[in-house]
Design a binder for these strands. Structure first.
Length: 755
DNA sequence: TCATACCGGGG
DNA sequence: GTGTACGGTATGA
């Protein structure tokens, strides 16, 4: 059906739109990049608003026209006027009206989107990064601005006269005339800092392609704290906007990436660039607090550092910016809005609004939930302890598959637009993936198809979240969302039952995946066979996949387990096994002990324990090994106020080090001394005055206890008996075998639906 | 120990 | 309209 295709990409093929700017006065500015050249067009476009009633709009007589839409939705009158102010004066912004920002009104009405027939590489992109004397724009100042121009050259601007520096930067931007301006944390730091300094110094920030100097604002979820809002408790956040250019913050792309991948060490530029291989091999690095000091002694070092920053931002944007670029070809919103939007309200809602209007159908009004609780996914722990020959099977994109399989859609979506969009996206995504495979590795076409596929996956996977989003999304439907999770639990239970019926032992099942262990005699082919057999029993669109196999698993608690790969790689998951505050000696012990445990080397576990106890008692371990990374959250005053009641190790350690002032948020490594106090663990100092007995207790109670499920109680006591106390246990360690204990589960679910 | 509030980043 | 990320950490009952 061609109309449904319109729902995904719009219907107007106008190529090369790189920016749209409208202020609701009937004029729309459109910039297009066609064969490398910028084309600027001024269009006329009437403003419109969707309302549920035209009663009481008599004041608009002669100034506005209306059209009534078909269907049952409450918002059924499209009221148009030449100027937005005419409409806004007569129609309140509440749930009886649907107001879109002016440029989105234009994109929805015309069926245009950004970037048709344009590749990411054709965009004219510029990066900039401020180097400042500190983080507070009220007192600190800019001393260097690193820029990277679209041709890849890096230009560093510095000037002791900050006013002149900002002026030169503005001139460079205007001369470069980029479509897109990028930086990491652009909206959280650089742009608000620049804006504030320009305001203080009275420098006009004429960065836009049209209009008077100065930055405009929009509300945003992450961004700068809105200036002078002290009247209210709620801190509103804003992002700056400039006409004719898109302001892209690579941190948004990083967060979106990490949402799916969950593999980043942090979201800072340096960490991400290094992790993703974007950083150069000898990247200059300077801790933030020292940058200005280094500038005064070794300015070239700061120049190298700042140049690396903008280079890395370019690399990150190219590596991670594809999905937002692809989304901008679909949804009727500006590129920068799609880059920081949540996929439900930010992408799906605009798609649905456009689909309804394109079909001439009335839209439902927002509606609060009826109080029905949202129910979640299933989580079962079937057995705890040590298992061998472990297999993981899971369903890819379970929730959207269930929505498609069982035609679960919001009640008020009479058009069936959400399911149609999800269906189309799934099909188109397979096409995009196939097209990507056909394109040469590293080619722009391949990157473009991969980005489109990633963008589509993002939208598909958020369709379920859209249903459950309370009253925030127009078609939210908690009953439909609960039906999805109910079907999900049903499928997971069926998977578990059918796997168990084929002779495997279930370990843990969570939402859309299950870990199980197979009999000794089974080969990998047997494992794959049972997964395929069970997959064949599931609904057509639900695809159960063989996800991996492991030599052994320590199952501790739900979502807390250790896996030993056949390649010897040990993976620890869950809060019980990994914590940033963990003392290094404890972590090292856990890895060593669990490694031995999963190789059935019980004497090795005991040896690891004894070695650690001995090293602690003999103070053979460096002080650093027993220290814990803490963050000070109380200010000195706050701590001194409560110190009488309770001493806290972290603060005592800082005080003992002779420091009387610190800032909330500072991080230190602290440890307990043999006198019972706290001390800081610092580099180049290793006094070894730690409280050995305390750390031995910690070893037993916090670390060894993570292995409690692996042994029968008397065996656990024997393995972790204190070497200094006469053993009551005469068992030979070599005879101890790790155990796997079934967890007495809830009553089995009913499977009547399947038989 | 458990529930809940908050943060993530930038110089 | 800014729009319910999510997993770790800090804190208070």
């Amino acid at each position: 059906m061609p109309i449904e295709e319109d729902w995904l990409f719009g219907w107007d093929p106008t190529p090369g739109i790189v920016a749209v700017w409208a202020e609701g006065d009937g004029v729309v500015h459109v910039w297009r990049r066609v064969a490398g050249t910028l084309v600027y067009e001024v269009e006329r476009s009437r403003s419109w608003v969707l309302v549920d009633s035209i009663e009481g709009l008599r004041g608009l007589a002669g100034k506005a026209t209306y059209r009534e839409l078909a269907g049952e939705g409450a918002l059924r009158f499209v009221v148009r006027a030449d100027d937005m102010r005419t409409l806004a004066g007569a129609i309140p912004r509440d749930d009886h009206a649907l107001y879109l920002p002016p440029e989105e009104q234009y994109l929805v009405a015309t069926g245009r989107t950004y970037f048709k027939d344009l590749t990411f590489a054709e965009l004219r992109r510029m990066q900039f990064d401020l180097e400042t004397t500190g983080l507070d724009a009220e007192v600190d100042r800019i001393f260097l601005i690193a820029t990277r121009l679209p041709d890849g050259t890096v230009q560093l601007l510095d000037d002791a006269d900050e006013r002149a520096l900002i002026t030169r930067f503005v001139e460079l931007v205007r001369a470069t005339d980029p479509d897109v301006i990028e930086n990491h944390n652009l909206h959280g730091f650089d742009l608000p800092f620049l804006e504030r300094r320009a305001r203080i110094l009275n420098v006009p920030l004429a960065l836009g392609r049209i209009g008077p100097p100065g930055l405009r604002q929009r509300g945003a979820r992450r961004g700068a704290v809105a200036p002078r809002q002290q009247d209210s408790e709620v801190t509103r956040r804003i992002r700056f906007v400039i006409p004719g250019r898109e302001l892209i913050d690579t941190m948004d792309a990083v967060m979106r990436h990490d949402f799916a991948a969950r593999d980043l060490p942090g979201h800072g530029l340096k960490a991400v660039a290094k992790h993703l291989g974007v950083a150069g091999p000898d990247r200059e690095h300077i801790p933030g607090s020292q940058i200005h000091a280094v500038w005064q002694t070794d300015p070239d070092r700061v120049r190298r550092y700042a140049a690396a920053d903008v280079e890395e931002v370019d690399g990150l944007a190219r590596l991670l910016g594809g999905p937002a670029f692809a989304l901008a070809r679909m949804a009727p919103r500006r590129y920068e809005r799609l880059a920081d939007a949540g996929p439900a309200t930010g992408v799906i809602d605009p798609l649905l609004v456009r689909a309804y209007l394109r079909s001439g159908q009335a839209l439902p009004a927002h509606r609060p939930g009826d109080g029905t609780q949202h129910t979640g996914a299933a989580l079962h722990l079937f057995a705890a302890g040590v298992a061998h020959r472990v297999v993981k099977a899971d369903v890819a994109s379970l929730y959207p598959s269930l929505m498609r399989e069982y035609k679960i859609s919001p009640t008020r979506d009479r058009l069936g637009a959400l399911l149609a969009v999800v269906d189309q996206l799934v099909v188109r995504r397979l096409e995009a993936k196939a097209a990507a495979k056909l394109a040469p590795v590293g080619s722009p076409e391949r990157a473009s198809h991969e980005a489109m596929s990633a963008a589509m996956k993002l939208v598909v996977n958020s369709a379920y979240g859209y249903l459950g989003a309370g009253s925030l999304t127009r078609f939210a439907d908690v009953h439909a969302a609960n039906e999805v999770t109910r079907r999900g639990r049903e499928v997971l239970d069926l998977m578990c039952t059918e796997l168990a019926a084929r002779g495997v032992t279930l370990l843990e099942a969570d939402t859309d995946g299950v870990y199980f262990t197979v009999p000794t005699s089974w080969t990998e082919a047997d494992e794959r066979r049972v997964v395929a057999e069970v997959a064949a029993l599931l609904p057509d669109l639900v695809r159960l996949e063989y996800d991996g196999r492991y030599a052994a698993m320590l199952s501790h608690e739900p979502k807390n387990y250790a896996l030993l790969g056949y390649d010897g790689k040990l993976t620890l998951r869950g809060v019980a096994f990994r914590s940033s505050r963990a003392e290094p000696f404890g972590e090292a012990f856990l890895r060593r002990a669990i490694g031995c445990l999963l190789r059935d080397d019980v004497p090795g576990v005991r040896a690891a324990y004894l070695a650690t106890v001995t090293a602690l008692r003999g103070r053979e371990l460096p002080t650093h090994e027993v220290s814990s990374l803490v963050r000070l959250t109380k200010t000195p005053d706050e701590y001194l106020a409560v110190r009488e009641q309770r001493h806290e190790l972290s603060y005592e350690a800082v005080l003992a080090a002779g420091r009387t002032t610190w800032r909330a948020g500072e991080r230190y490594r602290v440890y307990r001394t043999r006198s019972g106090g706290g001390a800081l663990s610092v580099e180049d100092s290793d006094p070894r005055d730690y409280d050995a007995d305390h750390y031995v207790r910690l070893l037993r109670d916090t670390y060894a206890s993570r292995l409690v499920r692996a042994f029968a109680p008397e065996d656990f006591a024997a393995v972790f008996a204190d070497p200094d106390q006469l053993s009551l246990f005469t068992r030979s360690l070599a005879t101890i075998v790790p155990v796997l204990t079934p967890i007495v589960a809830d009553p089995p679910p009913a499977y009547s639906d399947f038989h």
